[in-house]
């Protein structure tokens, strides 16, 4: 799903003061909305639609698998995608220059902090993924053991049931 897709399949309507928007009012709203443009945002929404796919998880186990995949795809924090509001006027230009100076001073400490944080993120995600794998394996082993035990007990149980049912014992 992306931000442009209809968030519901119900027929579009707007009600104000108990009255429905006329088709023309609704068309105006939709046309004006279509004119809103932000390529960066549209790109982010298209690229990150995988997050909303979490809603399609069949159960919690599927949710966890999808979540881990998302995390695995991106563990790094970065500043490349940090958005700076456009500078307008003289004040904006001064602010922009100050920002640039501050950034050149802070770049070293920032990269050091980001490096450490990225290392922690990666370790955490790997540990979490490993834990999930171990639990799944453990669960599968327990289920297999239980099934084997049930198979072992079943013939005796079946025999017992038949004898009682026959009333011949």
């Amino acid at each position: 799903m992306n931000g442009n897709a209809a968030i519901t399949d119900a027929s579009p309507r707007v009600v104000v003061d108990g009255a429905l928007f006329s088709p023309r009012q609704l068309d105006d709203l939709r046309e004006e909305a279509r004119a809103l443009r932000d390529d960066d945002l549209a790109g982010r929404m298209a690229g990150e639609s995988v997050i909303l796919d979490l809603r399609e998880a069949r159960d919690e186990s599927d949710f966890m698998a999808r979540l881990l995949k998302r995390f695995g795809n991106r563990t790094q924090i970065g500043f490349e995608r940090m958005r700076r509001p456009p500078a307008r006027g003289l004040k904006g230009k001064v602010l922009e220059a100050v920002r640039r100076v501050l950034w050149s001073l802070m770049r070293g400490p920032h990269d050091w902090a980001a490096f450490q944080q990225n290392a922690v993120n990666e370790q955490t995600i790997r540990a979490l993924a490993r834990e999930v794998r171990l639990r799944r394996r453990e669960g599968a082993a327990l289920r297999a053991r239980l099934e084997a035990l049930e198979r072992a007990v079943e013939p005796a149980g079946t025999r017992g049931g038949t004898m009682t049912g026959d009333g011949t014992s």
């Binding site: 442009n4 399949d9 579009p12 309507r13 707007v14």
Partner: peptide, 16 residues
């Protein structure tokens, strides 16, 4: 009759 009720709008339309 209070408020504005909507249905069937996408994210941009709701924002607007």
């Amino acid at each position: 009759e209070g408020g504005v009720r909507y249905e069937g709008l996408d994210a941009r339309e709701l924002a607007l």
